[in-house]
Amino acid sequence: MARTGPHGRAERRSAGELESEVLAALWATDEALTPADIQGEIGGNLAYNTVHTILKRLYDKGLVLRDVDGRRGAYRPAKNAAELTAQAMHEALDRGPDPIAALQQFVTGLSPQEEEALRDLLRGSGT
């Protein structure tokens, strides 16, 4: 089953894609998240057990840590590799012509008028 529903409901996500989404959710907040928090956050009728399995896999890879001082069963993202990557990225950016500019960037710059228009767009449809 590749797609669901004629009205463009979301497609099924693979295990690798779900791993990325769980990791992204953990990085998006400063708080530690429990599997239930994550389940609520990424939605899509994801079973609790599935979230748990994904967290276990991320833990085995060393990408997430169990929260020691917070809530029981909550997870935080592991920072080490991410900090090294950030350092390497900033070194590359500071070194002169941006080598990353040649890549497909998610977004590019805006003019002041465009900024205003985009703010209206986000306000207009209710955040």
Binding site: E19, L23, N80, A82, T85
Partner: peptide, 15 residues
């Protein structure tokens, strides 16, 4: 940028 990240994970986060 990919150094230190497991080879089988799709998402690389930079802190």
């Amino acid at each position: 940028l990919c150094e230190g990240h497991p080879p089988d994970s799709e998402l690389i986060v930079a802190a």
